[in-house]
Nucleic acid binder design. Sequence first.
DNA 1: CTGTTAGCGCGTTCAT
DNA 2: ATGAACGCGCTAACAG
Lengths: 336, 336
Amino acid sequence: MVTIYDIAEKAGVSAMTVSRVINNTGRISDKTRAKVKRVMDELGYVPNQMARSLVLQETRLLFLIITDITNPFYTTLARGAEDAARKRGYRLLFGNTDEDPEKENDYIDAVLKTRADGVLLAPAGDASLPHLEMLRRHNVPFVLLDREVPGAESDVVLGDSKEGARQLVKQLVGAGHRRIALINGSRTISSARERLEGYREALKLNDLAYDEALVLETSFGPRSDLTGIEAWLDGMRPLPTAFVAGNNVLAVELMRTLRSKGLRVPEDVSLVCFDELASYAEMDPFLTVISQQAYQFGHLGMQMLLDRIQSPGDPAGRRRIVLPAELIVRRSVRQL
Amino acid sequence: MVTIYDIAEKAGVSAMTVSRVINNTGRISDKTRAKVKRVMDELGYVPNQMARSLVLQETRLLFLIITDITNPFYTTLARGAEDAARKRGYRLLFGNTDEDPEKENDYIDAVLKTRADGVLLAPAGDASLPHLEMLRRHNVPFVLLDREVPGAESDVVLGDSKEGARQLVKQLVGAGHRRIALINGSRTISSARERLEGYREALKLNDLAYDEALVLETSFGPRSDLTGIEAWLDGMRPLPTAFVAGNNVLAVELMRTLRSKGLRVPEDVSLVCFDELASYAEMDPFLTVISQQAYQFGHLGMQMLLDRIQSPGDPAGRRRIVLPAELIVRRSVRQL
DNA sequence: CTGTTAGCGCGTTCAT
DNA sequence: ATGAACGCGCTAACAG
């Protein structure tokens, strides 16, 4: 491996001069600078980031930990985060937890060992609290995305889940539906709780009774974790006329199950959900959804994180951004 | 920051003993081991990966560089790669190039600086050759995914693009189509070339003339880079009765454009493509596709890479894996 | 403008 | 079974 000492020797200067050329620090004569640069090219020198980090105590490495890398909501978010990080000269390390706190724990471990400068985290759920405390204890700045964790006073970028759920239900009620089911993620996840609450509020507002049998609590994904949908459908007599899905993965899985039973949307039942379905939305805009600004989640979150990192003294209180939800009406709701 | 020296002092041993406990190397009495471990817990010690890498000359860090993180083909591939890496104790750093050799160059730079142990790369195109030479010069093992780069003798995992294209055309011809168009990625990408070639071969085999006007060469994505579709459609008189799309992104974009012109699939025109459309395929299996084993691309590629890394002496010639393509017939082709 | 010294946190070598 | 000295590649602080 080529080191600054190799350069120094061949250029007839000291290692320190080479270091200065590389980092553009201090005053160097144009002549020596040119010579050093030439030697660097000749030898194909590449700075060793490890050695640098060790002395500088900063890695310029950030982690983005998401729960489902195959969910377009999160990949779009990831792109937003990456763009913002690149723009400011940071590298992004991705982690994928599959909604599993154990895997999340592994990644937190990696963050700590790697001495990453910060973390952007879509927490697996309330069980993530110890992980956040770990980060705090080791002074690793972090920002939560999409979900809050009770007990963790931290910066966070959220969607307006409660309002979103209200709007979806309102839309259904407006179309004449009165028997409305909800398929949702685990109640250990703040966004799932909010969506349930919004759903209940909207029912109440419309003088509709809340019926536990109409609510299925399963998982936001990945697909293989989704169970009990079929049994749930079979257990509801009569079938609801409309469904609200807590996210896109649930909507897809529900639709698949409905189809396998010969039920069509919207002819037989209506369906609305949170989040777009990526390509599907472009190809055949069909589902009525609450569209969240996935890219902004990542982009804003990353900016908040970098602000924290770059002004560490600043105690500026907790920042909590709630992005508005936008209802997009399409063809998946039938007028009764 | 807590270091092994802090532990050593508090435990009344030398730093070396602490290091041995951490790495389970050498012989240590159970008593001192226990004491050291207790102190480590008390102080919340986390090994510094940077310092470790510096002395061990290995980072256990791998890069996965893909061209479009919002394309489900690549995210599925990424999951395969990640699973394989985790299983063998390596961390994975993702990079997203948007098919742009410049961005790819940035990531190659990052690989070198970070002293990553290896790279899994879906190259942006033939222009990636210098990047590969760079990696070679610095002895960084790499495996190419999904695309070859002429001139680079390297391990690679490919899909059988030519055969896939043949099958798609054959399927269309079998349904009575004779005017078949192709919308494809840039010819600077090996898979695009192969798909074009397979298309041409299949035409010839069926005594159909090759017509340049029926072929549009654009980009495999991301969506914002796709241009000229509308003009292309407007320029073809008469319109083809069927389209082959070189990948899923192109299929979606083409379908969107067709729809905007009031053309329906398959009623007005037929459409087949490479790669599944993720959720769309589950929700409403509609497009006839060549389905590639995306997960396997990543999984096998990662295994090859780790094999290289873990037996560096082994000169074992270039390995080239071609994964078979599977035709899945659905409803997007109309029988003429 | 340039060089010397010291140390970032850790593991290898060689002693004891 | 345990420790001391050294070096991985680099830069901050100081000297000249």
